[in-house]
Design a protein around this nucleic acid. Structure first.
Lengths: 178, 178
DNA sequence: GGAATTCACTTAACATGTTAATCATCTCCC
DNA sequence: GGGAGATGATTAACATGTTAAGTGAATTCC
């Protein structure tokens, strides 16, 4: 299905002046990844200064935040919950442990697995940041509207679900799982 | 053998009589930044393999894509359009220029400004990638629904606009510029 | 007309994203 | 029980995100 160049033959005269260069694909601002990126950045821009004042990055905050919801958790599971890739998580955990914000031990029955939990110091830090964070979130909700916000969440969830089973699609290899 | 556990199945409900551990904040999965991040990742996951096959990263693609829409453009304006920070753009332009995918010259009346344009080679690369990219985008639209997609764009735009004037809010300094 | 300031990048430094490779277990199966 | 393969976590290598500092060129203001 690849050799179909009918798309729009990205080959106008291109000859002389500017105006002959027509938009080759979708208008840039209408690209879905771009819209999502811009929206997310608009939101994160609100939180970053506060986090920074407490010496935390967005990802470090995500991890600590996830840890407050459980007693302890394995690294792989934490990666899934905090939506981080393994290598990023490894680095961040190393730093957080060095700062004594988390604790880490080996799993009882499997020496490969590591179990992580938040420390008292980490909990204290969370408590220090939470009020500001909540206030910002409340302001965002106020501005955007609680109903609309819920609707957006819903639509994003559906989008994720819609794309769930979509393969790579280029050198698409979706071989059956034996 | 170890079939992929459905997401809900793995969710650490965590006893949760653990009322000693008071609910820290909003449930993690309901965090807006997280929802946006997950949605965007679900979308980008579809495009990355194809781009990679052509030796392009997402950001490099964004830049080349933006350049096809104009004859030439100043670096600052390109940063705004492609939604990249200056430093990232500097690095990427250096690489793209080394690969002869773009061309760069100084502005006529202002030696500080640089003007960038896509090269013939760059245009050729775009043409090679575009069909696959468009096919993926079409499939996403088909799965999610064109109407719903438009609605999502709209809501994301409104979100961005809603947050436009919101200050840092921590050590918030939005003093009038006297 | 020249010092101070602003402006358009660019570098620097550190943290994360992304993919591939490595390492140490663990499991399975003969 | 021992070796092949799978698994959990880390390390490596490169690209980008993010903030701060640097550089050279224009602008402002006295």
């Amino acid at each position: 299905m690849a050799r179909k160049k009918s798309l729009d033959e990205v080959r106008p005269g291109q000859g002389d002046d500017a105006s002959s260069r027509r938009a080759p694909m979708r208008e840039f601002s209408r690209s879905l990844p771009m819209s999502l990126l811009r929206a997310r950045e608009a939101v994160m821009r609100q939180f970053r200064p506060s986090l920074r004042n407490h010496g935390l990055t967005e990802q470090q905050w995500r991890i600590l935040r996830a840890l407050t919801a459980v007693d302890e958790i394995e690294v792989t599971e934490l990666a899934r919950v905090a939506f981080l890739l393994g290598p990023s998580l490894s680095r961040i955990l190393r730093d957080l442990e060095a700062r004594a914000l988390i604790e880490r031990k080996a799993a009882e029955n499997d020496a490969r697995r590591a179990v992580v939990s938040i420390s008292a110091k980490g909990l204290k830090l969370i408590e220090a940041v939470a009020p500001t964070s909540e206030a910002i979130y409340a302001e965002i909700t106020r501005r955007y509207g609680a109903r609309r916000l819920a609707e957006l969440h819903e639509m994003l969830g559906v989008l994720e679900a819609s794309l769930a089973g979509m393969g790579s699609a280029d050198g698409a290899e979706v071989e059956a799982e034996e």
